[in-house]
Design a protein around this nucleic acid. Structure first.
Lengths: 218, 218
DNA sequence: GTTTGTATCAAACATCTGTTTGAATGGCAA
DNA sequence: TTGCCATTCAAACAGATGTTTGATACAAAC
């Protein structure tokens, strides 16, 4: 055909991302996807083999879309200070997993995969989550001062990433308890600020208390 | 029959909680539940009407079991200090949502409901989540010092509850990245300690920085 | 004993599911 | 043209799903 990947294949991929994100793997039917993509029912099995393989390709496709738009260094200058690097990490994470249509529901797809793991979760962990968390750990380490145990760095990194995940997982609740929250770019800036505010106070406090322990009554 | 609620009904309720927690609403079949409960296929529709009404009753049943075992004041003496109250809140939250079989998968059920809301989510929010969060806010407020804006209290409460939710949502990932973590009672104590460590440093830092702003150069 | 109402059961129901099939289409090289 | 190949399509497939049905069992009430 015209392209190496046919147009039909692309339409299925985009439609499937939206439908899988909205309903989850089990509740999504191939008929929903084909209806939205306006292609024949058999097209999914022709182009992707079966539903599960389509789902795996959707995960990879949505992830590459979201990461292309919002890489972990989004809006960050070279040689920035650790605090700025943390700010950029949190902000790009929130943007990448936000409901922005052009992310193709990446955040929601991963969220669902975490809650109801399929065989695709290992793929996501090995090729994405592990790297992402490692980057955060490298940002947090210098913020905790010198000679800090790695276990403490990991615990702090978990505390920080958990605050980012909160606004991913609790979106349905927040939407009902605080409908004014819209999760647009403006809200992301504010949420980034709140997470930074809380976390930097924690990191600075931990760092200081450890200095005092090293050199008491100084 | 012998009891006001028949034995069959109870068996279905317990079996359904486990199966719904394990597979989610859509992927759970009535045949799975009845097979596990060793009752006839028609028993679900006889005792509960249909699958959705059974699911709602399961949510309420699992919640009451989990809250009976681990109330928000679990292990807390009267008149305890705010910091101890926060410790008890975090610990009971983690225990209540842990994988302990006698919680009937309450944590997992709520987690799934958050990710894929049904009409039952409103019920959970109005009768549970809102109250739980309000209790946390009341614990956090005195820890931030006097005359602090309510919006800041809410943001800090969100930062704290998000760390607790992390160990609920990310369990599948943690299980694969750090298999030594078992989420038993011992691990809960350790995780509680880590969340307290990070959060108290944050709260103290925020509280102090605001005092300094009130009385500069004091 | 007869009736009544609750509870259980095997079987069937209509519908929806993912997948397959075989024919039709259309572009392209020989 | 002819043959070839990738692609699309309507139709059908077998199996699973939630739900219903009508028969049966059984204890209590009359």
């Amino acid at each position: 055909m015209e392209n190496e990947t046919t147009e039909t294949r692309g339409r299925i991929l985009e439609a499937a991302a939206v439908v899988f994100a909205e309903h989850g793997y089990a509740a999504t039917t191939i008929r929903m996807i084909c209806g939205r993509a306006q292609v024949n029912l058999a097209a999914v099995n022709y182009h992707f083999g079966n539903k599960e393989r389509l789902y795996r390709e959707v995960l990879l496709y949505a992830r590459s879309c979201a990461y292309d738009r919002y890489p972990p260094t989004y809006g960050l200058a070279d040689g920035a200070a650790p605090e700025q690097r943390l700010h950029a990490f949190i902000r790009s994470f929130l943007l990448r997993t936000s409901c922005d249509e052009r992310n193709l529901g990446f955040g929601t797809l991963v969220m669902r995969e975490l809650v109801e793991p399929t065989t695709a979760l290992d793929m996501l962990i090995d090729e994405g989550i592990r790297i992402m968390f490692g980057q955060l750990v490298d940002i947090v380490r210098p913020l905790l001062g010198e000679q800090v145990e790695e276990e403490l760095v990991l615990a702090c990194a978990r505390s920080i990433i958990s605050q980012c995940l909160f606004y991913l997982f609790s979106r349905p609740v927040i939407r009902r308890m605080a409908p004014e929250q819209k999760f647009n770019h403006e809200d992301v800036e504010m949420i980034t600020g709140q997470i930074m505010f809380f976390s930097m106070h924690a990191l600075n406090g931990i760092s200081e208390s450890r200095c005092r322990r090293e050199r008491p009554h100084a």
